[in-house]
Amino acid sequence: MITVFDSIADDLAEHGYAIADQFLSQQEVNNILDLEEFKNGAESFKKAGIGKNKGLQINEAIRGDYIQWLDRSSAPRPAVVYLERLSDMIHFLNQALFLSLKDYEVHMTVYPPGSFYKRHLDQFKQDDHRKLSVICYLNNHWQEEHGGQLRMYLPDGTRDILPVAGRLVCFRSDQIEHEVLPATRERLSLTGWILDQHSELRHL
């Protein structure tokens, strides 16, 4: 895993984003997908909104996903495996890139077929503590024709990334605008942000 962290650190430093396949093994992905929460996610998760705290709004014309925040103290073991790996990556990036990352916040995410998230930046105007966005995909047997790509808007053009199982995408929250394109099938991920302050679990 250290070599994966090395590659992520190098690409973040050079490009502002990194893609790491098999960040979760196939078995680790399957263990998460077997959780009851994911089996009926669109029914039991909360509708995701735009903004934060008192400014939070539900707007399906902008985003259509459903989410459930993960609390590390009560998360099921298959999800804890991912959270612990994320903690290890934070420690590595702090040493390799001389960052001051301190914590993370992560939610399970379900995009029903046909839903999307329009172009946006992950860092709030009034809250700049999100430093890195991290998404780990959980979609087995995903094909190009299924759609659902993450489209990143980069200085030299756009780049589309398929949400295939086990793939981690990590990028600068303050710099890279992105969107989620509609898919023909349900699209699952663990989506989160690495922070320069300790998370207060304010979303639970």
Score class of each variant (00 low, 15 high):
D65G: 03
P76S: 04
L97A: 11
S74C: 08
K131N: 08
F98Q: 08
V180R: 01
F116L: 13
A20V: 14
I8H: 03
Y137C: 04
L162Y: 09
I161T: 02
A165L: 02
I50R: 01
N53T: 08
A42P: 14
E28R: 04
R119E: 07
D88Q: 13
D10R: 11
Y111S: 00
N59V: 01
D21L: 09
P113C: 06
N30H: 05
E28H: 05
L168D: 01
E43W: 02
S74M: 09
I2R: 06
G192W: 01
V110H: 06
E36R: 08
S7C: 10
G157N: 06
Q26N: 14
K118Y: 03
L181K: 10
I32Y: 04
E28C: 04
N53K: 15
Q95E: 12
W142K: 07
F98I: 03
I194C: 00
F116Y: 15
R119P: 03
K54I: 12
S87T: 11
T3M: 13
K52N: 05
L181R: 07
H141I: 06
P112L: 06
L99G: 08
I58A: 14
K39W: 07
Q95D: 12
G16Q: 14
D71S: 14
S189I: 01
I67N: 00
A79I: 00
R77T: 14
H107A: 07
Y153S: 02
I2A: 10
T109R: 02
Y153F: 15
N40R: 13
D122S: 07
E14R: 15
A183H: 03
E177T: 09
